[in-house]
Amino acid sequence: MTDLGLPEGIQACLFDLDGVVTKTAVVHAAAWKEMFDAFLRERDGPGYRPFDAVGEYAEYVDGRPRADGVRTFLAARGITLPDGGPDDPPAADTVHGLGNRKNALLLDRIRTGGVQAYDGTLRYIDAVRAAGMRTAVVSASANCRDVLRAVHAEDLFDVRIDGIVAAERGLPGKPRPDTFLAAARDLGVEAKRAAVFEDALAGMDAGRSGGFGYVVGLDRTGQTEALYAHGADIVVRDLAELGGTA
């Protein structure tokens, strides 16, 4: 698979959604910042320390299931909230309430600004499929299917493991490898025969700990060194750099 930039023996490609297939990672980061800043401002007053939509987003939130992102960030700030439940209203000061508040902000931003895909990724997926490999999308987002439909990319994937499927199957999210392993199983391939494509540090951790054959990091925000440190075999700025997209 040298023309696709992959080692010999790779039979399937597992793609994260936000920041890999679609240009939604920056929208997610903005929604997280809006939600956390409002929460922190109300909690701590005018002297609150704002949420860092680059560093803290990458370290605590990006790639994780929504509630895990809330918990991890709040723990880093020494804040404890009750978990509540998945159906908590966005106004609730619970882990799930804050997560649902963020999701409402995200959906509003998507409705207002729309969704775009990375052309280099779409061309690469076409080339992968033309080469006979199977594909899956693996995302923590419960909005995965709607986002794929918005960019007309749903048919590019044989398997979808998203936040809804993970909840139904009881799969822990990234940085655990379970969602990627489930995608490989559904495709009928061993992890060592599958490549993972991720832009999140938590996704790098999942790819490495899952024993996957190749882990590709997408650097959209200038975190090449961190992606390598978390397990990437190679880091590129666009999948067109791997080849197969001419």
Rank of each mutant, 00 (worst) to 15 (best):
L4F: 04
L4G: 09
L4S: 10
G5V: 07
E8C: 05
Q11D: 07
Q11L: 13
V21P: 07
T24E: 11
V26E: 15
V27A: 13
W32C: 03
W32E: 02
E34C: 01
M35Y: 05
A38R: 14
A38K: 13
E42R: 14
D44N: 14
Y48T: 04
A53T: 01
V54C: 05
G55L: 07
G63I: 07
R64T: 05
R64Y: 08
R66N: 04
V70L: 11
V70Y: 12
T72C: 11
L74D: 11
A75D: 15
P82T: 08
G84H: 06
G84T: 01
D88S: 07
T94W: 05
K102T: 00
R109Y: 09
R109L: 09
R109Q: 07
V115W: 12
V115K: 09
D119A: 15
D126M: 03
M133I: 00
M133G: 01
R134V: 06
A136Q: 03
A140Q: 01
S141K: 01
S141Y: 02
A142E: 10
R145N: 03
D146T: 11
E154H: 12
E154D: 14
L156M: 01
R160Y: 01
D162E: 04
D162Q: 06
G163C: 07
A167T: 08
G170D: 04
L171R: 03
P172C: 09
D178G: 07
A184L: 05
R185S: 12
A194W: 08
D199C: 09
M204D: 13
D205H: 14
S209Y: 12
S209G: 08
G210C: 11
G213F: 06
Y214C: 08
D219C: 05
D219S: 14
T221D: 13
E225H: 13
L227T: 10
A229M: 05
G231I: 05
A232E: 11
I234M: 03
I234A: 06
V236M: 08
V236H: 12
A240N: 01
G243L: 00
A246F: 01
